[in-house]
Design a protein around this nucleic acid. Structure first.
Lengths: 220, 220
DNA sequence: TCAAAAGTGTTTGTGGTACACCCATGG
DNA sequence: CCATGGGTGTACCACAAACACTTTTGA
């Protein structure tokens, strides 16, 4: 039985802004849910892959390319869209702070919103965002995905701050540094950055590093 | 742009059989890929959720209900089905051994196949199965999902054997028992089971147990 | 009494966590 | 010389891994 189902992709775009973890939301101009905030998304074209569709939506909203994108989950409850049967393949993207700030701010109907103060959104988008946030935090703990939120060169303090913002808790500086360094996923560029106080060593992410590390086995 | 996309669900059904980890495959009767083995699946009905569709496909193949089902990933490359644009939401299910053995064996065009000796399959189904197996192994290590492959009452040796089959490696009996027991996810039923040698205590899964345990943090 | 599987503790090593002071620079 | 953030080491504890023998039953 072939059924009439439309397929969309929605993309949860995370960035660090104003010492806060924020997502890009768009305000809907038409029914249903006119005036409500929503996760950006759109229909999948016939000849593009799902991931390409997600990357296209991301580019349309932010003019950002070549960032971390991954598939999150597919939401397909029959009544999730009042217009008919629409399933959405949700993705999430991590964009480095400075690029994202420039690009997101100019659209009147697109705003960065703190994940800690989200509005009631259109469709099942609150649920999608909850899930995306849970996944982001979870991945931060066992993979090197957090670097994707930073510029290509960063200090260890930048990185620690990023982790603290996303996880929503304070971390011990010495333990943080030791573990990041012994995971060998970053390397010093040799350069330093100074604002105030002692200049900080700059690091870059090592492309050849294993991005995902096996979690502890609970069961043997 | 609303595009003509069909939506299917495919379900990777795992079980333990003949001291082996096996999946249920069906032999295709029609083109494309006539005669090739494939993961069971079908179109999503207009009024059912994706998970309901997966559960329905599972029931149609095995007459098994109320088992662990979870969404795996959505595969949507434009050319994955030569007939047109079809995306598939893949699920995986874990069915307890004895039920599965009875149900799967009678269909001529449906067979349990060892995950260690898989044929070249239709569509992108080898890729889907690789991914499902990876996910199953991964989840076994940090969650209590492994119990879903056993009957409601089982011995610790049964459980250890299940882990060994899925993970493909030998485990130390004392360490295994200690960790399972101190995770407090199972409880003794009080009964014993005897075949040969000393009778073994029977256990059941504790429904109130936390099924998923936080993995070690690699990064602080 | 023997075969077969169940059941049980200890030691050692690794890694996580907690914790406080000195260093380099700019103003 | 002072304020500001950068950078460093150690002690304790918990848990993972390695490892061999005793117990209970049926034949």
């Amino acid at each position: 039985m072939r059924s009439e189902i439309s397929v969309t992709v929605d993309i949860v775009i995370f960035t660090l802004r104003e010492s806060d973890l924020q997502v890009l939301l768009v305000k809907r101009k038409h029914a249903p849910f006119e005036g409500r905030w929503a996760i950006p998304g759109g229909y999948v074209n016939a000849d593009e892959s799902l991931e390409d569709a997600a990357a296209r939506e991301l580019f349309e909203e932010t003019h950002v390319e070549d960032v971390h994108i991954e598939q999150l989950y597919t939401f397909g409850e029959p009544k999730r869209d009042p217009r008919g049967r629409v399933i959405t393949v949700a993705y999430f993207a991590l964009v480095p702070a400075p690029l994202a700030v420039e690009a997101g701010d100019d659209a009147a109907d697109a705003q960065w919103k703190s994940v800690y103060r989200l509005p009631v959104m259109a469709f099942d988008h609150n649920q999608i965002l909850d899930y995306a946030l849970k996944r982001l935090r979870y991945k931060l703990e066992y993979s090197a995905v957090g670097f994707q939120l930073l510029t290509p060169e960063f200090t260890l303090s930048d990185l620690q701050q990023a982790y603290e913002i996303v996880l929503g808790e304070q971390l011990d500086k010495r333990n943080f540094r030791r573990r990041i360094l012994q995971a060998a996923v970053i390397e010093p560029t040799g350069a330093h950055r100074a604002h105030e106080g002692r200049p900080a060593r700059l690091y870059r992410f090592r492309e050849d590093a294993v991005a995902e590390v096996k979690a502890r086995r609970l069961f043997p």
